[in-house]
Amino acid sequence: MGKLIIVKRLFLLSLLGAVFFPLASLAQQVEVKASADTDRIRLGEQVQLRLTASVPQKGVNVVFPQVPDSFGHFEVVRRSALDTSIVSGTQLFGQTIVLTSFDSGRWDIPALKFEVMNGNVADSAFTGPLSIDVNTVTVDTTKAFKPIKAVRTVGWSFWDYWLYFAIGISVALIGVGLFIYFRSKPKKVAVAPPVPVTPPYEIALQQLQQLQEEKVWQQGDIKQYYTRLTDILRGYFEQQFNIPALEQTTEELLQHIKPVTILNQQRDKLRTLLSLADLAKFAKLAPTPEEHANAMVQAREIVEWTKPAAVKDTAAEGTEEARQPAK
């Protein structure tokens, strides 16, 4: 029974040794040090704190201590970047931290902690503390106080104010440029609203209405009546269907309207009207009053038939609504 207890204790000790021995050996492998370039400064002077770490084994990483900007009676002025070097197979890491103090006395820089890591194994190494004497400025009280010096007048120099001159000149040039630009910029002319364009069929119907109201044939001017009547239709054909109707004879016009389906549908009515007009203008035929009135009716029907389909549909709907009895 006693031997069993001894074996268990030896096994436990070996297990603890296997766990803690790598940590102890890891910390011993790294040598860390903190040193100062002086141990005595006056108020406001600076001291350089040098931190170094020596790592003889590859794969071991060292994390330098994070010194705060202010600690104890010291303030950090600046820090250098971490520098590395290799000497005889040993890696050397170093960093310089410049400190200052404005409190007189003997102050200690505490031990600083370095983190040492090798894979998943971590350990810590510490530097030794340092003491710095911060002394006040020695004043010789046996000498008389010197008077305060008068304010010195510094000579004016253009280069002390060149930036202000450059800004002022730039602003002035920009202002002049904007003034010239807006002064020479052409003013926008107000565009008059477009005048509504009267459709050709409306113009033709208005002209036919005017011709009827003037009672030209009633006054005996038969030729003038048919000339104006056919000119109104020909002008309407030119504007509505792009047919050079004013320059063509009756037969030429009838030939040219064939491709225009909606106009060709009135071919017989148009032929009758144009033939009657040619006889009245050139053969001195005297049509009857009924033929005069019927010519005007036919002209209106041709215009109404050939005007755009949308207009005809709208007009038809209006007529249908007017015919329906009020509810």
Rank of each mutant, 00 (worst) to 15 (best):
5 I>S: 07
7 V>F: 12
17 G>K: 00
18 A>K: 03
20 F>Y: 06
21 F>Q: 01
22 P>V: 12
28 Q>K: 14
32 V>N: 03
49 L>K: 03
51 L>I: 05
52 T>P: 01
55 V>D: 01
61 N>P: 00
62 V>C: 02
68 P>Y: 06
71 F>L: 03
75 E>H: 05
76 V>S: 06
93 F>Q: 10
97 I>K: 07
99 L>K: 01
100 T>H: 03
105 G>A: 12
106 R>G: 00
116 V>W: 00
136 T>E: 13
136 T>M: 04
137 V>F: 10
138 T>P: 00
142 T>Q: 05
145 F>L: 13
155 G>L: 14
168 G>E: 01
170 S>G: 14
173 L>C: 04
174 I>L: 05
175 G>C: 07
178 L>N: 01
181 Y>V: 09
182 F>C: 00
185 K>T: 04
186 P>Q: 01
188 K>R: 14
191 V>W: 02
191 V>R: 09
193 P>D: 04
199 P>C: 04
200 P>F: 03
204 A>E: 13
205 L>T: 10
205 L>W: 07
206 Q>S: 15
208 L>M: 06
215 K>H: 08
219 Q>D: 13
219 Q>V: 05
221 D>E: 13
226 Y>A: 04
228 R>L: 04
232 I>H: 14
241 F>M: 13
256 H>S: 15
258 K>F: 11
258 K>C: 04
261 T>A: 14
268 D>M: 11
275 S>W: 03
281 K>V: 14
292 H>N: 15
292 H>S: 13
294 N>C: 00
295 A>T: 11
304 E>H: 06
310 A>R: 07
319 T>R: 15
